Simulated assay, not measured.
Amino acid sequence: MSNRAAIRYAKAILESANENNTAAVLFGDMQSVYGTIEGSRELQTVLQSPVIKAEDKKEALLKIFSGQSGTTHSLIKVLVANKRTPLLGKVAKTYIDLYNEEQGIKVANVITAVPLSSELEAKVMAKIKELTGSEKVSLKSEIDPEIIGGFILRVGDIQYDASIVNQFRMLKREFKNQYN
């Protein structure tokens, strides 16, 4: 239920932003809102808490996001009025996804063992273009030392695993199959 509600709110503000030619500005706002909420366990707790009064939540959110647009402030007020403040992060994430989809931007998640070098980033971007056929790509990078080297790429439902740990797994499987 909450996901459907988040989608409805996100679609409504995207539609409004498109009518007012502020979709790109609101996209920046929603990235900030989502990043702030995801990065703060305390803020997530406040949004979820039934003990904290709605008016206090609204006041806190409006202070935290004081630099955002009027549309973002209106969204916060509507969510507070409808007792839906826990949805704010989901609404922001859904808006980001809808905006990217509308703009034809593919979001790619890449996992590497070390921070992306410009050389590896170029290889990853080339692979994304090969897999999706899209020139518009937003790249999100994550570091996981467990993969040893190479990269794991996810774009939508597509996953491409060029990690060293995956190559070791494949080698192990080959040896098992040959000698069993």
Rank of each mutant, 00 (worst) to 15 (best):
N166Y: 09
V137K: 00
M170V: 12
I152P: 00
E119P: 03
I37L: 10
D29N: 09
V46S: 01
V124G: 06
V124N: 05
Q68L: 14
N18S: 08
I7R: 08
Q103C: 02
K172N: 12
A122Y: 01
E121Y: 12
I76M: 02
E121I: 08
T85W: 11
L153A: 00
N166H: 14
G89I: 10
T112R: 05
Y9G: 03
E142P: 11
R84A: 07
L75W: 07
Y99H: 14
N180T: 14
I105V: 12
A5N: 00
S163D: 00
I13G: 02
Y160A: 10
P86E: 03
D29E: 03
S117F: 05
A24Y: 04
Y179F: 15
N100L: 14
G104M: 06
S66C: 00
L43F: 08
I148R: 08
K53M: 00
A122F: 05
S118C: 05
P86T: 12
N82Q: 15
E121F: 10
R169A: 08
E55F: 11
A5K: 08
F27M: 11
D157P: 03
G39M: 09
L43S: 07
K57N: 08
V33P: 12
S2C: 02
K129N: 01
A17G: 07
A24W: 05
K123F: 05
M170W: 03
I76W: 00
V155H: 03
I96Q: 01
F27T: 04
V80L: 04
Q159F: 06
K63L: 07
V107Y: 02
S69A: 14
S117W: 05
A162S: 09
I64H: 07
G149N: 02
V114S: 14
L62Y: 08
A17Q: 06
S141V: 13
V110D: 01
D29Y: 03
I158K: 15
P145F: 00
I52P: 03
A108I: 02
K58M: 15
D157V: 03
G39K: 11
K90A: 13
T71D: 14
K93D: 10
V33G: 07
I164V: 15
I13L: 08
L14V: 06
N18A: 11
K93I: 11
N21T: 13
V124P: 01
L47S: 09
T22D: 09
N166W: 05
Y99W: 15
Q44E: 13
S66Q: 09
G67L: 09
I128K: 07
I111Q: 11
K106N: 07
V165A: 15
G156Y: 14
T85M: 11
